[in-house]
């Protein structure tokens, strides 16, 4: 761990100013990912601006009939909220399928969106990685790890985004509210918040330097069923090898791309009367497996079709 300094400002404006002013400064929320990465010196902030106790931890009803999740709401808090459970069950399911109880108690809504990939070559600092050192190359390409992207990968990066929560939020058409150092506020659609790797895989979101997530806003719940299902290598405390969120007419897939993957081709096919299996086949036409992750085609075809077919009741994991 590189030496760093730490401070805890009293309000959002001070936090924004500090991060804008100090080179190498970073926001610290739950720290469940950032601190681990600092120990491995993958992240090397010079200064941590602790935003975890800023007044951004409320869950509020919006006038439109949705919910605003403050950036510092914890994963446990959101998953347990009666309004979330009643109106956004896919979100509660997704959060509870991730991490462990201890981690969910610390991890925040904003931090969850900003967690970094779990690609083992990203974590092993003896290996080239374009995320850690742009231009260094990608050890995952040509490696033997199988939990890699089948959509939207590039020659620079085949990593996936590890979040469960963000997949459900994508299906729920959530918005991300931000503020930057100048005080300017922005709203981004979650589905365009994360980026595909292209030749800049180290730039993972559309956030600008010193821009902070202040809330995630859920629109009114869509008509129709919601479900989140996740496949993984053990029953708990494992990242997805594939996941599916369905919320009304919207479908999102997890662990298949550098970002939560909105399955627009599947949605379109369904709209045109395709069966669930046909819709997933339409979506997977664009998939480009690399020989190691081919299993994800069959997995996503089946899991997607099952989620689009099931009522979501009575056969939990």
């Amino acid at each position: 761990m590189k030496p760093f300094t730490y401070e805890r400002p009293a309000d959002v404006a001070s936090a924004l100013t500090l991060v804008a002013k100090i080179p190498g400064a970073r926001f610290l929320a739950g720290g469940t990912n950032l601190v681990d990465l600092m120990k491995l010196q993958i992240e090397q902030p010079t200064h941590l601006v602790d935003v975890s106790r800023l007044p951004l931890a409320e869950i509020e009803d919006t006038p439109e009939g949705g919910l605003r999740l403050g950036a510092m709401t914890t994963n446990s808090q959101v998953a347990a909220d009666a309004r979330v459970r009643a109106r956004y069950p896919a979100l509660a399911q997704a959060i509870l399928s991730g991490a462990s109880g201890q981690l969910r108690n610390k991890a925040t809504t904003a931090g969850n969106l900003l967690q970094r990939t779990r690609c083992p070559y990203f974590y092993d600092t003896t290996k080239p990685c374009n995320k850690r050192a742009p231009g260094a190359g990608c050890a995952a390409i040509g490696g033997i790890h199988t939990n890699t992207a089948i959509f939207g990968a590039s020659e620079a990066c085949i990593a996936t985004h590890p979040s469960d929560m963000a997949v459900a939020l994508t299906a729920l058409d959530a918005r991300v509210e931000t503020k930057s150092g100048s005080g300017e506020a922005r709203v981004l659609a979650l589905e365009s918040f994360h980026r595909l790797p292209g030749d800049t895989p180290h730039i993972e979101t559309e956030l600008q330097p010193a821009e902070m997530i202040t809330a995630v806003v859920l629109p009114p719940p869509p008509a129709g069923r919601q479900i989140y299902r996740k496949a993984r290598e053990r029953a708990s405390y494992a990242f997805a090898i594939g996941s599916v969120a369905v919320a009304g007419d919207r479908v999102a897939l997890g662990a298949v791309a550098h970002k939560p993957w909105r399955a627009e081709a599947a949605e379109l096919a369904l709209e045109q009367g395709a069966s669930p299996a046909e819709a997933m086949a339409a979506e997977l036409e664009a998939a480009r497996p690399d020989g190691h992750n081919d299993f994800k085609l069959k997995l996503m075809a089946r899991l997607g079709a099952a989620c689009l077919t099931t009522t979501g009741a009575g056969d939990g994991q």
Partner: peptide
Amino acid sequence: HEYNEVDPRYGSFIAQDLAGYHVPAHAD
């Protein structure tokens, strides 16, 4: 659950921590 693999180019293990190397959790 349990397995590790050797990267054929580097001789390093793919799983190098307990998030990547799975032993049964209570739910299993």
